[in-house]
Amino acid sequence: MGMNCSEADAIMYAFVDGELSGSDRTAYEAHLMSCDACARATRLQSRFKAALRGHLPRPEVPEGLHQRLHRALEAEPTVRRQWPWQAYPRIFTVAIAAAAAVVLLVASPRRSPSSPVLEQALSTFHHDVPLDVLSQSCAAVTDWFRGKLDFTMPPPAGADRALCQGGRLVNVRERFAAYVVYQAPAGHRLGLMVFPADDDLAFGPRRRTLGGRDVYVGSSRGVSTAAYHGPDGLTYVFTADLDEDALAHWVETVYLQRR
């Protein structure tokens, strides 16, 4: 019944890349519990992946490239298009998705969230993705992100009250974002995704005021979410296997604590 090392080796990268789910993942984790060699190899591969990202961060786009591309496109003859859904494929996709979302919202008004970012946060949380850095110290986790993001990851205001599990780089809307996992009270787990957003993302219908800030809360499939736009231009999305009130309390005391 148990997995052997050769079987584990075959899917080790899938595990490290966060691509395993369900019974495959459970079987793999069970094997790691009983096999030190594979547990160590997995940890090394995970660290190697993180080290690669650390050594080779995403480069900045050179100053002149935008203008250069714009000029090159200007020189191109115009492309022929007949239909608006061809001309605006994305807009139509979005419109159809929005229409579908409206239908869903009308059909089941309690079914939040509808935002793609919230969906992504939930799916990241549900998959329990492997972490690039493991540490109980939130300062160490915050520190690890330095130089890997194109924004500065701020430490939580109430850092001394929180314990971390670790962090990972994730991709949100085509940019790197920070994903930090906290140890929430009573053995619960709490994920936080931080990323820069220039626009206001719609986070759902229920709004609360926590620590003087508008925070959007919701729940879906047993997981609560809380999201807000920070004054620092960053968007914070929390997910936890806590109820909404407990999550709101945690966010308020750890993240939105007034100094």
Partner: peptide, 26 residues
Amino acid sequence: MLFRTAPSKPDFEREVMPHLRLLYGV
């Protein structure tokens, strides 16, 4: 405006430019 025969370059740019950093990085 919806049924135009030629999409403007700004439409294309709006679609593609958000991926510029990824393209350049790779």
